[in-house]
Design a protein around this nucleic acid. Sequence first.
DNA 1: GCGACAG
DNA 2: ATCTTGTCGC
Length: 225
Amino acid sequence: MKYEKLHEWNVSVEEAIKIQNQLRSKIKLMPLKEEKIRYVAGVDLSFPEPNLGYAVIVVIDLFNMSIVENVAAKEKVVFDYIPGLLAFREGPVFLKAWENLKTKPNLVVFDGHGIAHPRGLGIASHMGLWINLPTIGVAKSKLYGFYKGLQQAKWSEVPLLDPSGNQIGIVIRTKENADPIFVSPGHLCDLDSASKIVKKMCLENNRLPEPTRLAHLLTQKIHRR
DNA sequence: GCGACAG
DNA sequence: ATCTTGTCGC
C-alpha cells in the first residue's frame, strides 16, 4: 500500500514535538461511513531485540471477522521509547510493513492512542495522516486525561476527558475482571464511530478488538520460536 | 520539586 | 515492549 511522506523520522525530541504540534491541525474528525467499512486492519509490534522492531498488520473481513491478509516487516529502531512520542519509534517499522500490504483497508486500528494524547496526535492520528485513511487508537492503558465512575460490570463505559473537560476518548470495560481499554479516534473518524465499531469487534471474552488481538498473536508467534 | 508517563 | 511457570478464578 502507498502512503504520503510528511516529514523525516530521524529527528530530535524537540523536533518531534514540533512536528506533532504542526500536524495536529490536519486531523479531521468525522463520522465513519459504516456501510462502507468491510476491511479493517490491526497493527502491533514486538521487539525480538532491544533495537529491532517487528511490525505485523492483519486485515480482517468485518463480515466474518476472519483474516484476509497479513504482512510483516522488521527494522532497526533508533528512537527510544518516550511517552507521547511512540509514533517516532514505531511509525517507521509500521510503514515498512504497510508497503507490503495488497488489500486496501477501510479502517486501521492501532495499539496506542489517537487524539487522547498531550498534543492531540497519538500514533493512530499520526499514522492516519500518513496513510490518509480512517484510523482508531485502542490502548491498554491511559496516557493523557482522566475519567471517573467506571463500573466493574462488562460493557461499562465512561468518557475520557482532557484537563478542560473536553471528551477525547472512551474508557470501556470489554472484559469482566480486567482493566478497561482506551478508545479514541485517530483520523477521519469520530468518538461515536470509534466506540461503536470497536465494541462490535470485541468478541467472546476478549479484552481487545479482533484486529489488534490477532495482530498481537502473530507478532508474538513469529517472535517466540 | 513532585507525580504522570501509549508501547 | 521485555524478562518468565504455574496457578487462582470466572
